[in-house]
């Protein structure tokens, strides 16, 4: 029922991408986003697409996972495509039919925006698909820790994220169970107008909130009774280490950015 969210949906594996240090992956993901935005010419996008495909192959991830990540955008992407296609009225007129006019710039922009969004989502999904949420927050904490000098609560932030990520699946599961328990008592979530339906959600929301508060309370107690007192002097069970793989990966992404910049400068315009 509610199982279809890909948020933090780590898929176990031991591909080259899985083995990278989470810090490297986070930085490279940001670099990838920058690279995607650097592309100003549609023909150069081929490089980005090629890169995304190669990285996907390297991750041993089946393409269906990436499509699943794109699923929430299934309305937005076509909408953006159509808006760009019909609303931009510069360039050469390509097609005219009844009140619709398609111009070359419109077509270019429409393709561009869809490619950009799709590759961005694919790239970021590859990060979350190949990195455990815990490793991700660990990496983030490490990356943010220089900011502790200006009193930025890096550890607390990371801990909050870890806990939130840890409990999202639990809450989804619990919502599922509560829903079943109320269904078994003849609750009806599907019929009636919007107010009726909103009211019908109460038997789910109330136990969910009550249980969450209780759980938060218990968790805080359990953490305190194990002497948790913030990040100071805390050591880690899994220490993050850079390896040669990370170096290779950084070079590859640097090469990607270089290739984009050079291609845009030197390639003669195709269209």
């Amino acid at each position: 029922m509610l199982k279809d969210i890909t948020l933090g949906q780590y898929v176990p594996g031991d591909s080259a991408l899985h083995k990278l240090d989470p810090r490297t992956k986070i930085i490279l993901m940001i670099a990838f986003v920058v690279a995607v935005f650097l592309v100003k010419r549609i023909e150069v996008f081929a490089i980005v697409i090629l890169f995304t495909i190669v990285v996907t192959l390297l991750s041993h991830m089946s393409i269906s996972y990436l499509f699943k990540a794109l699923k929430p955008m299934r309305l937005l992407l076509p909408l953006m495509f159509l808006m760009n296609l019909f609303l931009i009225k510069t360039g050469d007129l390509l097609v005219e039919w009844w009140i619709f006019k398609i111009y070359s710039d419109g077509l270019k922009n429409a393709i561009f925006i869809v490619l950009r969004l799709a590759t961005l989502i694919a790239g970021t999904s590859l990060l979350t698909l190949t990195t455990t949420p815990i490793a991700l927050t660990d990496g983030l904490e490490k990356l943010l820790s220089p900011l502790k000098i200006i009193k930025f609560p890096a550890h607390e932030l990371a801990m909050m994220m870890t806990i939130a990520l840890r409990f999202i699946p639990t809450l989804v599961e619990e919502a599922d169970k509560i829903m079943k328990a109320q269904l078994a008592r003849g609750a009806d979530f599907e019929s009636g107008n919007i107010f009726k339906r909103a009211k019908a959600m109460l038997p789910i929301l109330i136990p969910l909130f009550v249980n969450s508060f209780r759980r938060a309370d218990e968790l805080a107690m359990a953490m305190e009774s194990r002497c948790y007192h913030g990040g100071e002097g805390r050591t880690r069970m899994r220490v993050l280490r850079f390896t040669w793989r990370d170096l290779v990966a950084i070079f590859v992404v640097a090469a990607l950015i270089a290739a984009i910049v050079i291609a845009q400068k030197l390639l003669p315009p195709l269209f």
Partner: peptide
């Protein structure tokens, strides 16, 4: 069906209202 954990089911403001939920449905 009575579930393993009662916390999944109880929600109303009073016990009586909660027990009435099913019959009303």
């Amino acid at each position: 069906m009575v579930f393993q954990y009662p916390d999944y089911q109880l929600f109303d403001s009073t016990v009586l209202d909660d027990v009435m939920f099913g019959p009303k449905n």
